[in-house]
Design a binder for these strands. Structure first.
Lengths: 266, 266
DNA sequence: GTTCGACTCGTACAGTGTTCGATTCCACTC
DNA sequence: GAGTGGAATCGAACACTGTACGAGTCGAAC
């Protein structure tokens, strides 16, 4: 019953003797395929032919497709650059980090599909986390709060960017531009929103806004929100030693089952 | 070149004459399959046999699998309950809304795979958005800020919950419990973190913490962060009429191309 | 009783990830 | 130089997948 945890990073890379094909090579080819034609374009057969090798040769270097995806994922994590916090304020560092991720995601829209679902424990992910945690250390967070702050920021960025990416992919698929597509969706939305007059009113009111600009503003809005929230916590922690345990959360769940997800305090 | 936008919600449901099979029925069966055995278990063939009908009969009620997924997605959105804001403060409403989503996601872990990538314009998604926007209206936000606040909260909740779900699915797959799995991953992480001593030190320091508790604390941490940030903005807006446009963001992109994703202000 | 549309479904196609066993190739020892 | 063992490649085959197509069934309206 009990299987072991397994990941590309648990297994050693296979010893190189006559490397006509290598992991690095495979990963690069996979990335090119993904960037050029998206997630669906990456099949083992296409990858094989692109590498000029047999279809199944890849399987000697990589256990299965999921491992390959772990590798390319970490490759993208390598592009999430954390600025050196010693050169600016933590707010600036965190902010431009967020924008860097956003940019990298636009470059590799396909990653969002497995960014929360594939374990990110590769070396590049580690490097990124290390830098981000350092940022929040310098900000004044202590203990696990450093991790919490980091994961909060990451969660937000991934969360907002996901729909943006899907929007862009829809643009590509349909060949329309932003405002055309918006107009094309409008009737559906309005029909669905018919039962919620105030919502319909809003859509009518803001229909003229440029979609992309609105998205950019949205991103900035949430980002400053989070940074403000973090700052507020810092200031609060400065005076009274806060107890971060919300009521209803047990410190250790009695058995493997974990139902300590109590609703928020009232 | 230019295709039209298309979604289940654009097409009318097919007229019912002798409904031995119906959309509602299909969606219910699909949900059951998904909840019971996860995303991979939902194939059109299995769905057909579960419904006691031919494999391809479903295709008369639904154009293709993606449409079916749009339908089940909206079904889940129906479980994201927004509390009536007139009965508490907006903070409490937003907070328990966040926890409600979290709970619903735990119940249907598979949705996270297409929650940002499939357009959410079904009636239930609309109802939810309407309620959430109303919450932030009552909080004091005006204009597009209501949308921004809503999408910020949603983005965060989806973003943090995603890795939690992947964690849980790994638990199921391996049959280990939380702390066993954690211990099993530990060496990989430590090895990868070897180059980042401060990171390694952190992991050693907090290894004893219960994973699930830590995750719950993390969720609460980020949530209060966002609520604090929103509140700060409300207070700020009370006195000076803020200009939310960050420098470097054009109000309208000149052509379809949208490169107004300037880095954060320095 | 015929006709027409709603609806079901079997077959077939092109594609997928992956297994298995055979094959090639190279570095090494005797 | 012949021989051996493992590294690496690869072709064929298996069990799947989503879906197009066309033939078939059924119920009601004329």
């Amino acid at each position: 019953m009990k299987e072991h945890f397994s990941s590309v990073w648990t297994r050693e890379q296979r010893a190189a003797k006559s490397p006509t094909l290598s992991r690095a090579q495979i990963v690069r080819a996979a990335m090119e395929l993904l960037d050029a034609e998206g997630l669906d374009a990456l099949s083992m057969r296409r990858l094989g032919t692109k590498l000029g090798s047999g279809t199944t040769s890849v399987y000697w270097h990589v256990a299965h497709k999921d491992e390959l995806l772990e590798l390319v994922l970490d490759e993208v994590y390598g592009e999430f650059t954390v600025p050196d916090v010693r050169e600016t304020t933590w707010r600036n560092a965190a902010s431009s980090f967020a924008y860097a991720i956003r940019q990298a995601l636009f470059k590799h829209p396909w990653v969002i599909s497995f960014i929360g679902t594939t374990p990110a424990i590769g070396p590049n992910a580690m490097r990124m986390m290390s830098g981000l945690v350092a940022t929040f250390d310098q900000a004044g967070f202590r203990g696990p709060d450093q991790d919490y702050a980091a994961s909060t920021l990451l969660a937000y960025v991934f969360g907002v960017t996901a729909p943006e990416l899907s929007w862009r992919s829809m643009l590509e698929r349909t060949g329309l531009d932003s405002n055309e597509l918006n107009a094309s969706i409008q009737p559906v939305v309005e029909k669905a929103a018919a039962d919620y007059p105030e919502l319909a009113a809003r859509y009518a009111e803001f229909r003229h806004l440029d979609v992309d600009t609105s998205r950019a503003l949205n991103f900035e809005f949430g980002l400053t929100c989070i940074l403000d929230g973090l700052e507020a916590r810092l200031n609060r922690a400065a005076s009274p030693p806060a107890n971060h345990l919300p009521p209803g959360v047990r410190v250790r769940s009695p058995k493997g089952n974990d139902e300590n997800d109590a609703p928020a305090p009232h």
